[in-house]
Write a protein that binds this DNA or RNA. Structure first.
Lengths: 376, 376
DNA sequence: CTGAAAGCGCTAACAG
DNA sequence: CTGTTAGCGCTTTCAG
C-alpha cells in the first residue's frame, strides 16, 4: 500500500511553495528542462536512489533524519514521481477506465460521477473515453484501456445486440481478466454465463412495466411509445416492459403508436410532431428517456396540446431536468450514481465481495405533474 | 508519429477474434496469467523484439512477410502494448488531463465533451478528475496529473481568488512547462504576466453586462442578483457586469437584492423563498447561473408568482435545460464545447499556434420567455 | 536502516 | 531490412 503518499496528495497537502518556483522561473522556454528523477533527488540528499524510493513509498523504515533530507531535496527539486515508471514496475497502476457514449447526457454524467467518486475513494485515477454511440469505437477504446493496464474498465450503456460486437466484448472480458483487470458493464445485460465481467444493471423492464401499468390504471388505453431503438438492449427491455404491462391486462399496444428513433430530445420533438400531424389517437405518451420526453413536451406545447389535461407524458431515467420541465415529469427513477459506484467497487474487489458478478439495482416510478387520469 | 496503430485502434479496426479467446478461456481465475510482452511475440514469430516494436510503431520499414508473422503472433498471443512502458521510453505519453469541479453540471459536461473530442481527435486519451469545489483537492489533483506526465492539464472553472491557491497554481504552471507539458485554464482569468499557461476564457462580465442592460432597458429597476460567491472569479466578474450596466445608466443596484450563495439549484430556490418572505420589492431576478435560475423558477411558481408577468427571470450559461424550463429561460449563452476544444488545441500546440496564451471567446444573450418588459 | 544491482516492457541508436 | 545493446525511472530483492 504505497497509497499513503498519493492520498495525502489527493487531500492537497504539502504546504511547501516558497521560492522554489522562482528558482527556475526564468527559463520558461517550455520543453527545455528535464524533470528530475529519483537519482537527482538521491544525489542532492546524499543517499541512494533506493532510499529515496523508500521514503516515496512510505512503506519501509527510513531514519527520520534521512527521510527529512530526502524530503527536503524533493522539495527543492520540485520532484514528482513518474507514474509510468512506477506502473511499469509491475506493482500497481491505480487507474479506472470509464467508457461512455457521451459525457453530455445527464444520465451518463451521473453515472460518471459515481464512478469517479468511487474510483478516487479507492485511490484510483479515472480515464474517460467516449464512443459517440459507435460500437466500433467502443471496442477500440476498450482495447486502448487494456494498453493502459487499467485496474478495471467500466463500460456504460450502449449494449449493441450484435453478435460480432458481443463476441469481441466477451473476448476483452477474458483478456482483461487474464491480466488481473476486470470488465465492468453498467446498465446492460451480462455477456453470458462464465464470462468474467462485473455486471451492474437496473431493472429496465420492471421500470417500464410499472410505468405502463400506472398509465393503464389511470385509464389510458392508447399509449404511444417513443424510442424503439433496434439492437439496443436498453431499448428492447423497456419496450418489453411496456408490452408485458398491456399483456397482463389482456390488452395490446398499438403498433402504429410505437415509433422508432434514437434517444434524443430532437427525436422526441420530431416524433411527436409527426404523431400530431398524422392525427393519431392517443391519450398518453411514454418516452423511452427523459430527454425524449423533453422534446415531446415542447412539441405538444407548440401544438397547443395541454399536458396533462389532454395528453399525459411519462419519461424514463429521472434525470435532474425532469424537475425543471413544465409540468414536472412523471418518470422512472434510476439510481445512476449508485450504478457507477457499485460497478467500480465490485470490479475492483471482485474476489472479496459476494455477488460481484451480477447485480440488479431497483427502479421505481416517480409520479409528478405530467400524467393524470384520463379525461379527468 | 507512432500514432498510426493507436488511431486504427480508436477506429476499432482489427478484425481478428477467432478462437483466440478460447485458448486461455478456461483459466478465468483472474490475476493468474501474465500479459504477454514484445519478447513473447518476438519469440513466437522468430524475430527480435525490436522488429516487433517496429511493426508496432508502423514507423519503420519491415519486410511484409516478417510483419505478417509478427502480426500473427500478436494475434495468437492476444498481445497489447503496455502503454506505461511506452510512455516511460520518454517518447510520447498521449494523455490530456481534465480537472473539473463536478462532471454532473451540464455546464462542465459540455466543456468536458469539447475537451474529450479534441483530445481524441489529437490521438490523446483523457484523464478525468473532479475537485468537488475544493481548492485543496484541485491542487492535489493537478499534482497527480503531473505525475502522470500528461501532455497538458486542463483545469475548468473554480478559480479561487486566494493568494496561496494562485501561487500554487502558478507554481504548477511553471513545473508543467518545464516538463514540456502545459497548464490550460478554462473559464477563469490568467494567473498573471509571464506565467506559462494557456487561458481560454469567455466574457463573463460582458455577458452579465449585456443581460443587465437588457433587463434595465425593459424597464426593470429593482433587479435581484442571486449568486454572489466571494472569492470566485466567475462570480465576481458577473457581478461586475451587473453593476457596470447600472452605472452606465446612472443607476445603482440595490445591495439588499444581492444575495450571496453557491451556484446551485437549491440555493436559487432558497434565496428566492427568502426574497419572497421578506416582501422585498423587485421585478426581475438575474440568477448567476441557469441552475440557480431553475431553483428560482420553482420557488416563484410555488409562491404563486407568475413568470414573466410578475417577475422576469434571467440566467447565465445557456445549458440545455434552459429550453426545458417553463417558461424557457432567457440567459447568457456560453460556447462550452468550443472552450474545451480550444483549450486542448492551444495547449497542445502552444508553440505553433498564435494567441496560444490567452483567448477570450464571446458570449451573447438569448432572450426567451422568462423575461419581458416590466409591467406589460 | 541503507546501498548495490537487477529488472518491469518498450523504443532507439548502432551495427550488421 | 533486422538483430544487439542500452537505457527510460522506479521498485525491489539481497547483502551489508
Amino acid at each position: 500500500m504505497s497509497a499513503d503518499g498519493d492520498e495525502a496528495r489527493l487531500r492537497g497537502e504539502e504546504t511547501d511553495v516558497e521560492g522554489t518556483a522562482g528558482k527556475t522561473g526564468g527559463m520558461s522556454g517550455g520543453s527545455g528542462g528535464e524533470a528530475s528523477t529519483v537519482r537527482d533527488v538521491a544525489k542532492r540528499a546524499g543517499v541512494s536512489p533506493s532510499t529515496v524510493s523508500r521514503v516515496l513509498g512510505g512503506t519501509y523504515p527510513v531514519a527520520t533524519a534521512t527521510r527529512a533530507k530526502v524530503l527536503k531535496a524533493m522539495r527543492e527539486l520540485d520532484y514528482v514521481v513518474n507514474a509510468h515508471a512506477r506502473a511499469l514496475g509491475g506493482s500497481t497502476n491505480k487507474t479506472v477506465a470509464f467508457v461512455v457514449d457521451d459525457v453530455t447526457g445527464p444520465f451518463y454524467a451521473h453515472i460518471a460521477r459515481g464512478v469517479e467518486e468511487q474510483a478516487s475513494a479507492e485511490g484510483r485515477l479515472c480515464m474517460l473515453c467516449t464512443t459517440h454511440g459507435d460500437p466500433q469505437r467502443a471496442l477500440g477504446v476498450v482495447e486502448l484501456m487494456r494498453e493502459q493496464r487499467a485496474d478495471c474498465v467500466i463500460v456504460v450503456g450502449g449494449a449493441w445486440e450484435d453478435k460480432a460486437y458481443q463476441d469481441r466484448m466477451t473476448h476483452f472480458a477474458h483478456a482483461l481478466d487474464r491480466a488481473g483487470s476486470r470488465l465492468g458493464l453498467v446498465g446492460r445485460p451480462p455477456l453470458g454465463e462464465g464470462v468474467p465481467a462485473t455486471v451492474v444493471e437496473y431493472d429496465n423492464e420492471g421500470g417500464a412495466f410499472a410505468m405502463t401499468t400506472h398509465l393503464l390504471s389511470q385509464g389510458h388505453r392508447r399509449i404511444a411509445y417513443l424510442g424503439r431503438v433496434p439492437l439496443l438492449s436498453t431499448s428492447r427491455e423497456r419496450l418489453q416492459g411496456f408490452t408485458s404491462a398491456h399483456d397482463m391486462l389482456g390488452l395490446s399496444p398499438y403498433p402504429r403508436l410505437i415509433k422508432d428513433g434514437v434517444f434524443s430530445r430532437s427525436y422526441g420533438y420530431q416524433a411527436t410532431r409527426e404523431l400530431l400531424a398524422s392525427k393519431a389517437d392517443f391519450s398518453a405518451i411514454f418516452a423511452a428517456t427523459d430527454m425524449v420526453a423533453a422534446g415531446v413536451l415542447q412539441a405538444l406545447r407548440e401544438g397547443g396540446v395541454r399536458v396533462p389535461e389532454d395528453v399525459s407524458v411519462a419519461g424514463y431515467d429521472d434525470i435532474p431536468v425532469a424537475l425543471d420541465m413544465y409540468p414536472q415529469l412523471t418518470t422512472v427513477s434510476v439510481p445512476h450514481e449508485e450504478l457507477g459506484r457499485t460497478a467500480v467497487r465490485l470490479a475492483l474487489h471482485r474476489d472479496e465481495l459476494p455477488d460481484s458478478q451480477h447485480q440488479v439495482l431497483g427502479t421505481h416510478i416517480v409520479v409528478r405533474g405530467s400524467t393524470r387520469r384520463r379525461g379527468k
